[in-house]
């Protein structure tokens, strides 16, 4: 038995706006990890998510999940989406318009599953007050909560999310990222999340897979991928945006927007030219040394 929860090897054909591209993807995801899937549009991110969910068939490939085979093109094995026991959060939320919030969640119950989980999730996602409303009567952030709660009703071990927070304003996005982290801690599912948001990647992801033209070009921790080097995993990575930067006697006094708060940083002088307001950076503490990198955006 391997330590990996999910093992993916896929060969497929992508039909993009720029023509037909071969898609070749191989990666493994460990149990409990959150993986961000990122890259330019048309790279095949959503297609990859749908292939893993079993909503489309690849040309050839293998997907295994724990000790189960989900897909093996050599033996023509294709476990349908229904039996993969995943949660899927769609970009357009895909809430059932004719059902109330509560009934959207009740719909997801597996046979013989106790409906108590629905009330727990309504409570955990702050939807209890809205349970009798139809999706059309909810704001975008509320609809997103319903979609997330509904995807978790069957207690999946793998949650697939297609740009779940992209349509929300920054404050709502932070709230929902926190909600996801909180639920992730409680229920210990793994996540694959399509996102373009650098902050989201550093906030949420243990792993980043960067995809371009149907292939994974980078794979690793966010700092490995974006700092382009191996870094100690016991370090502390801070992601932020420079607001101001002033030259004091022997240090730089910077203020930065970090994790939703304004913070003061004291940094070595030689960063002066790089730290202009609006620049995003990572600050990596490991073994007592602070290493600052500017992210190209």
């Amino acid at each position: 038995m391997s330590d990996n929860l999910l093992d993916v090897h896929i060969r497929h054909t992508l039909h993009t706006a720029h023509g037909v591209l071969p898609m070749e993807v191989d990666f493994a995801l460990a149990r409990g990890q959150i993986m961000a899937l990122t890259g330019p549009s048309g790279a095949g991110k959503t297609t990859l998510l749908r292939l893993i969910a079993g909503l489309i068939h690849p040309k050839t490939g293998r997907i295994s999940f724990q000790n189960d085979r989900w897909l093996d093109s050599r033996t023509r094995l294709h476990i349908p989406a229904q039996d993969r026991h995943i949660g899927f959060v769609f970009q357009d939320y895909a809430l059932f318009p004719h059902l109330t919030v509560r009934k959207n969640l009740l719909f997801a119950l597996a046979k013989n599953q106790s409906p108590a989980v629905v009330d727990e999730l309504l409570e955990a996602t702050g939807l209890a007050q809205l349970a009798d409303r139809k999706p059309a009567q909810l704001s975008g952030g509320q609809q997103q909560r319903v979609a997330l709660a509904r995807a978790l009703v069957r207690k999946p071990e793998l949650l697939l999310m297609d740009e779940p927070f992209a349509a929300l304003d920054p404050e709502m996005r932070y709230q929902l990222q926190d909600l996801l982290l909180q639920l992730h801690r409680q229920q210990a599912f793994s996540v694959i999340l399509v996102t373009h948001d650098m902050g989201e990647i550093f906030r949420l992801a243990d792993r980043v897979a960067m995809m371009e033209k149907g292939k994974l070009t980078h794979f690793g921790t966010p700092s490995e991928v974006y700092l382009n080097e191996q870094t100690a995993t016991d370090g502390l990575v801070i992601y932020g945006e420079v607001l101001t930067c002033e030259h004091h006697e022997d240090t730089l006094a910077a203020t930065a927007w970090i994790d939703g708060k304004i913070r003061r940083l004291s940094l070595p002088l030689h960063y002066e030219n790089q730290l202009r307001p609006g620049v995003t950076f990572t600050l990596h503490y490991a073994g007592g040394n602070a290493d600052l990198r500017i992210i190209e955006t």
Binding site: A81, Q82, Q91, D92, F107, A110
Partner: peptide, 11 residues
């Protein structure tokens, strides 16, 4: 996505 959501919910 309505149909696909239902499938991923095991229906």
């Amino acid at each position: 996505s309505l149909r696909e959501a239902s499938y991923t919910l095991g229906k």
